[in-house]
Write a protein that binds this DNA or RNA. Structure first.
Lengths: 201, 201
DNA sequence: ACCTGAACACCGTTCAAGT
DNA sequence: ACCTGAACACCGTTCAAGT
């Protein structure tokens, strides 16, 4: 371990970690640069040596979140050479679990706080890599007749959008009680996906 | 018109209007109570006579947004006794248009800034009323065989979730360029819905 | 009942200065 | 190269005081 003196050693990553922790404790609204600095035990202006502004830190946190999501998705998909059906359901379960577990990280990843994506190539890279993972599973499902053929990327966006939408509405408390009181988010998502899959019984 | 003196007359609604305007100019991040007050030409503490805090103003803005969305959805659906298919596509087009036009109002409506819904009955009411509109159209589509029968509310949530998810991802710039460069949001949504509808040729 | 102005704690960001 | 501390403009919220 690096000796604790004037220079922190790895302040950049310490700030990202501190940010994730504050996010899970105080939520998106409670995330401030000054709190992050305090938690990392540096002065409130120290973060500016590593991040140009708050947006930049949020981009780094979002990138880290996407890396974790990617890892969990590929772990869920990759467990042995299972059937396309098992793979896609496992992937979706992992997505929902991620959203329900690391709620505020998930929210910030998709809260458009990153407007100028071009400035954050690492974020764009992992986000694209994650999408490709989904596209590959969708393609397998198409080949085995589980999903209608053609337009693989469009189908992937449709399915991803559906899961993402249902999860988002649930996180914002927008799903009517008449529905959410009877079924949990995972069940609703499974139902929705089942409808799509039913296309090819 | 009310004479402009010490008392504003209808400051409450003026603040909501000012908020919506600031939202469309400066975005969600640029919305502050002090700016709203300034725009309504009152002191920065005047809003507190009508709203307990910023959340409360946001709830009022969201409620107003939902009222507009409800109006546009029912206008789209209600135009003559058209077919269920026309109705559902018209409704979805209206939803997408609303999201793309009043982007920041849409975002704040679904940004979970309203955590304690119970405290905002007007918001809950219009939100439920809007959902019922969707449920009714879905039921019509089920009756005419466009959508699979049963579980009407679940089907409604699935479809609403899908539209909402695709639109949200688009607003956050998360749809990969390989897709969004070829098709606009409306087309992607139509494609997704077409997949669901295809269930019953 | 409705609004103002001073006050307080907190925030993002900058910058000269320290190590 | 990395970090501190003072400073500035802005913010949400409170409260005594004005009309």
């Amino acid at each position: 371990m690096p000796s604790k003196k004037y220079h922190h050693g790895d302040l950049k990553n310490a700030l990202i970690q501190a940010g994730i922790e504050i996010l899970s404790r105080d939520g998106v609204a409670g995330l401030s640069l000054r709190k992050v600095a305090l938690r990392a035990k540096v002065s409130h202006s120290a973060p500016y040596a590593h991040f140009s502004d708050k947006q930049s830190l949020i981009a780094a946190i979002s990138t880290e979140g996407f890396n974790q999501l990617y890892a969990e998705l590929s772990a869920a998909i990759g467990e042995r050479a299972s059937s396309p059906e098992k793979k896609i359901f496992a992937a979706i379960k992992a997505y929902v679990t991620f959203a329900l577990t690391r709620t505020d990280t998930f929210k910030i990843m998709f809260s458009g706080v990153i407007e100028k994506e071009k400035e954050y190539p690492a974020f764009v890279e992992v986000s694209q890599r994650t999408f490709r993972l989904v596209v590959d599973v969708v393609r397998e499902c198409q080949r085995s007749g589980l999903l209608p053929a053609g337009q693989t990327e469009l189908v992937a966006v449709s399915i991803w959008g559906q899961i993402h939408g249902i999860v988002s509405l649930a996180l914002e408390g927008q799903i009517p009680h008449t529905v959410i009181d009877k079924k949990d988010v995972q069940s609703i998502v499974d139902f929705a996906l089942g409808q799509l899959m039913a296309l090819k019984g």
